[in-house]
Nucleic acid binder design. Structure first.
Lengths: 135, 135
DNA sequence: CCGTATCCACAACGATACTG
DNA sequence: CAGTATCGTTGTGGATACGG
């Protein structure tokens, strides 16, 4: 847990990871989207690479120089669950932001719940934490 | 999401919230458990109170002066889901730490999964994110 | 027990500007 | 496009000490 806190425990990393989840993989795109200082973004990406949450993948458009994009590793992909839960929490308590539904649907192709589920398969919630993302 | 990041986006807050989830509600207990500087703990608790994630509840032992303990509000309780998911992630990728199973069982009284679940009720995972906490 | 007051060193931030 | 270099300022961490 302390380790998890070290990974996502700062204001920007969480947002950067969300962008990665959204499919934003390029430096400038992230920078423009988040408004994060380039120096900070650079540092965070480097940290996430070192932690194995992101990896660089080379690509090139026709005739262009080779470039890199930042994509989630399996380890990074698994952060989707906590992150989506967190987004939903933010949506619920901080009205005015964008909805989470888009992200989930784009990445799973299905409407989903996120919640605690008992071994029997019946939904169990902690407080009112269970929710439906998309009808 | 950005708002959620502001709440839990720092190294200590996440740990403090975990303690609250564990049932540790008193200042010194948290301080001893986490090793966090008292000044920092004080500041974080104040911030969490202001955000409505924690509230103070008065209590007194026989004959003692009145004291306060920090307990989760409904808003705070709902952070359990993202947090448990996060703990599980940490457990998986950072071996050697304590298991998450204790927390879940203590607070729900039941063995649970945390995962994405389709509307039909069948489990859906993002990557391999779905997991079983306790058999 | 439950905090607050001070202080300092260091890290992080954000702005700006510059290279491949 | 994708970063790095530099720099002044602010914030945080941790130690220590002090009051309710």
């Amino acid at each position: 847990m302390a380790a998890a806190a070290n990974v996502i425990g700062d204001r920007w990393t969480l947002l950067i990871l969300r962008e990665a989840l959204y499919g934003v993989t390029r430096f400038d795109a992230m920078q423009a989207e988040l408004g994060v200082p380039r120096t900070v973004l650079s540092g965070r990406l480097k940290k996430l690479l070192a932690e194995g949450v992101l990896k660089q993948r080379p690509y090139r458009k026709a005739g262009e120089r080779i470039r890199y994009q930042y994509v989630l590793t399996p380890k990074g992909v698994e952060l989707a669950l906590p992150m989506i839960a967190l987004m939903e929490w933010g949506d619920k308590y901080c009205r005015g932001g964008a909805s989470t539904a888009d992200v989930v649907e784009r990445n799973t192709g299905a409407a989903c719940h996120v919640g605690l589920v008992s071994d029997a398969g019946a939904p169990v919630s902690i407080g009112a934490a269970q929710f439906r993302v998309k009808g």
